[in-house]
């Protein structure tokens, strides 16, 4: 474990806490893409298949349970909670995310570390996570004005993988046979998707103005 990876995990955790805070405090999920949240449930379930077979550390197991539990809780809230589901902007959340699932799975069948069930699903989860934010970013562009908590949620979510890229660079130089090219390349693509969001987020922060994404 290095400081970059720990910072990345904490930033990821913060993004989830901010989203839960928004939903529970405001009893609203306006501006949040249910499709992106559903993709994250698939990402975590596909990635943590080794939850009960490979024990790495207490921290690793606890964080996996937190990520799986929180992503399921968010989807449950947006689909089932009476007050919250009424605020879901269904007509703005129209990205056909099934293609993202299909594309990622096909890519995982072609590009993986080992042709085993667990490795295919691990690569699938890595590719899917890279594109999972797309429905949310498209929805933000459509909804124009972004409320603070939603903006902070997306910001931390984008920042966490940027920390992971620093972690991979650090491990590349400190560990002899460290190679994570699947996660690294996918992480670069994932962080690149946030580039324009980060730009507009920085502008809004600099001008102390509301976050406006060009339609």
């Amino acid at each position: 474990m290095n400081i970059f990876r720990f910072a990345g995990d904490m930033t990821h955790l913060i993004s989830i806490v901010v989203l839960l805070l928004k939903i529970y405090a405001t009893k609203s999920c306006s501006g949040i893409s249910l499709k992106t949240q559903e993709l994250y449930v698939i990402v975590f379930l596909a990635r943590y298949l080794d939850l009960f077979t490979d024990f790495i550390s207490v921290y690793n197991t606890v964080m996996k349970l937190v990520f799986i539990g929180s992503s399921l809780a968010i989807v449950w809230c947006m689909r089932m909670h009476r007050a919250v589901k009424r605020t879901y902007d269904k007509e703005l959340d129209t990205f056909r995310h099934y293609f993202l699932v299909l594309g990622s799975f096909v890519l995982a069948l072609l590009l993986h570390e080992k042709f085993t069930f667990q490795e295919i699903f691990w690569a699938f989860s890595i590719y899917l996570e890279a594109v999972a934010i797309l429905p949310q970013l498209v929805m933000l562009q459509r909804s124009g004005n972004v409320d603070n908590l939603t903006g902070q949620y997306v910001f931390f979510l984008g920042a966490y993988r940027a920390f992971y890229i620093l972690n991979w660079i650090y491990r590349f130089f400190t560990e002899p046979h460290f190679s994570r090219w699947i996660a690294c390349l996918s992480g670069l693509v994932q962080t690149a998707f946030y580039a324009d969001f980060f730009y507009y987020y920085f502008i809004s922060w600099k001008n102390n103005a509301k976050l406006q994404l060009p339609a």
Partner: peptide, 10 residues
Amino acid sequence: QEKPNSHDEL
């Protein structure tokens, strides 16, 4: 402990 190149990351 962490096996080399196992998936020790989240």
